[in-house]
Design a protein around this nucleic acid. Sequence first.
DNA 1: GGATCAACCTAGGAGCGTTT
DNA 2: AAACGCTCCTAGGTTGATCC
Length: 363
Amino acid sequence: MDYQTDNVFEAIWVGCAMLSYSVYSEILNKGNTPTKDSFWFTQTQIQIQAQQFCAKVIQPARLSQWTNADHTNNSYNYLRANGKLRRLTARGELRGNKEVPEELSQHSEFYLTISEEKLITIGQLTDWVNTKYTGIILGDHPQAMNLDIKPQELKPNNVSVSESKTETQDHPTKGCPSLNLISYLSDFLFKIKSGEIEVYNEFSVQFELAIFLRARLDNQYKIQLERNISLFDLNKSSFLKREMDIVIFDESKSEKYCIEIKYPNNGQYPEQMFSICKDIKFLEQLQEHGFSKSYELVIVSSDLYYINKGGSDIYDMFRKDKLLRGRIIKPTGRKDEELILDGKYRLNWIDMNGELKALIIPV
DNA sequence: GGATCAACCTAGGAGCGTTT
DNA sequence: AAACGCTCCTAGGTTGATCC
């Protein structure tokens, strides 16, 4: 089936990629070698090509501003600018941030017509951009690619001996995690307990934890807040949420960790319990998509989360069994929302200051 | 042809009053 | 007290008119 989209921006990316591929093929056919200067086009060239794939009008502003990574008010980083010329952003050139349309992978089997006798699928075109094209564009700056570094080539994190109490690997098979974040989270909770760190709502936990981690982790790790999963080229339609509370990753993104935080202090207990389960399910989804290790950090100030006062379903899991698992139905409203946890998660509450209790749930 | 600006749209979340 | 649901606000995204 021929490729068509109703997404103007996706059409621009595909249009520019196709132009680039055509130029590449043409140069090779002539027996020449393409260089990084071979792929600059006018906006109009890209606009006309993109319009072939999209019924909506491709406004000039889409190319000059919104998809232009070098424009201060852009929305996507699909193109790079050189005066009035544009070229496709190479893979990893902008750390993977909005370089490629999120939904593109769903169209990987669709065909583009390069010439009368030559067809290429979206998947093949994407592969070509990721490999050949990126190699040519970033050839002089291979460090910018950051895509093919093997985990064993990464620097070991230089956590000090005093900070890394138990440097065991939580999950030795996925993404080769070398950080034991449980150790850091335990230290963080200890500082709350001792009064050294004060938390008063969810945001304060989030920011204090980020500051705490930034002071202790090696510079090789980035710590970012409220980051969209598109940073890792993940398709939002496959996830319960889009934003990660705290995400920690290295330059190559071969190691990535997510920490979701809950600090409910405004009643609505069963809803908040379900919300915690939803976070855990989200972390399971991240694990399925290559995350090294993730954690749910919960801090509560009410015993209604853990004292067995009866109830059923979700109340039982939290208060009686202290084990989250299986099918969980949203306990309020129309009860038309449910999720199924793949794993089982024991709730070992940690005593904090006064009424505060905390949970660290590794996923 | 290309760039800029502003209005519009939408999803998600907070706040708060009402109902159970 | 807990749950519900409505309204408002905000940020991010989209669109089209207008200007250079």
